[in-house]
Simulated assay, not measured.
Amino acid sequence: MVKAIILLLFAVFIFILHETGEIVRFINPNYLYFSQIASVIFLFLFFVQVPRIFTSSEYDHSECGPWGCSHEDEGGGITVKTLLTYGLIILPLLTGFLLPYKDFGAAEALKRGISYSTHDHGHVEVHDELLVHQMDEGVQEIVKQPILEFDNENFVSYIRAVTSYPVNFVGKQILIEGFILEDDSFTNKHTVITRFLVTHCVADAHAAGLVIEEGSILGIHENTWVRIKGELNVKKSDSGLIPIITVSSWEEIHPPMDPYVYP
Results as ranks from 00 to 15, higher is better:
106 A>E: 10
91 L>H: 11
192 V>F: 03
19 E>W: 13
202 V>M: 03
34 F>C: 01
263 P>M: 00
45 L>M: 09
214 E>S: 07
217 I>F: 07
114 I>Y: 12
218 L>A: 03
113 G>S: 09
247 V>F: 07
213 E>R: 15
2 V>Q: 00
45 L>K: 11
154 N>K: 14
152 N>C: 01
192 V>A: 04
223 N>W: 07
46 F>C: 04
207 A>D: 01
206 H>L: 01
205 A>M: 07
4 A>L: 01
234 V>Q: 07
203 A>T: 12
186 F>L: 00
68 G>R: 08
149 E>W: 01
72 E>K: 12
156 V>S: 09
205 A>Q: 07
67 W>E: 06
37 I>H: 00
221 H>S: 12
210 L>Y: 00
225 W>V: 09
131 L>F: 02
177 E>D: 09
260 Y>P: 02
52 R>V: 06
197 L>Y: 03
210 L>R: 00
98 L>Y: 13
231 E>R: 15
165 Y>M: 08
26 F>M: 12
115 S>E: 12
134 Q>I: 12
58 E>Y: 02
241 L>D: 04
191 T>H: 11
221 H>R: 08
98 L>S: 15
151 D>K: 02
219 G>I: 06
160 R>S: 14
17 L>W: 00
261 V>T: 15
188 N>L: 02
98 L>E: 09
62 S>Q: 06
81 K>E: 12
194 T>H: 03
217 I>A: 08
99 L>Q: 06
153 E>M: 11
63 E>L: 14
221 H>W: 00
59 Y>K: 15
37 I>M: 04
21 G>V: 13
106 A>F: 09
249 S>F: 05
128 D>R: 15
63 E>V: 15
23 I>D: 07
94 L>F: 15
